[in-house]
Nucleic acid binder design. Structure first.
Length: 107
DNA sequence: GATTTGACTACTA
DNA sequence: GTAGTAGCCAAAT
């Protein structure tokens, strides 16, 4: 528990993202108290390959699927989001302001 | 132990 | 509206 690095903290929040919703790196970082260090969330996502975290629900501030390039498939991330009811076009989440899930507010 | 990197964000020109 | 730079902090090399 305590020895859990920054990753575990991110994993917990990401796994709590409601189905069909998305959030941004900065929002998670802010929730963890690491406001401004959105990169740390991204780094945690990098390790998410080992962990079972729905990283496809985490996108950048613009609702753009920034991590899509890191997925196995080219459009795997988009397919996963669309499978959850999220509308994605041109690697960008549509209605992002509506689908946006803020852990600091929702939790 | 120091340097580089990194799935970001915000500000400035 | 687009482009470039700086700031953030932790993990990997």
């Amino acid at each position: 528990m305590s020895s859990e690095g920054f990753f575990e903290q991110v994993y917990k929040v990401v796994e709590k993202i409601p189905h069909g919703r998305v959030t941004s790196y900065g929002a998670i970082a802010k929730y963890l108290g690491a406001s401004g260090s959105a990169r740390m969330v991204g780094w945690a996502m990098n390790a998410s390959k080992k962990a079972e975290v729905p990283a496809h629900r985490v996108v950048n501030r613009n609702g753009l699927l920034s991590g899509k390039h890191h997925f196995k498939g080219t459009h795997l991330m988009q397919q996963l989001l669309e499978s959850e009811g999220v509308v994605v076009k041109e690697n960008q989440v549509q209605q992002f302001d509506v689908l946006f899930w803020d852990p600091r507010k929702e939790l």
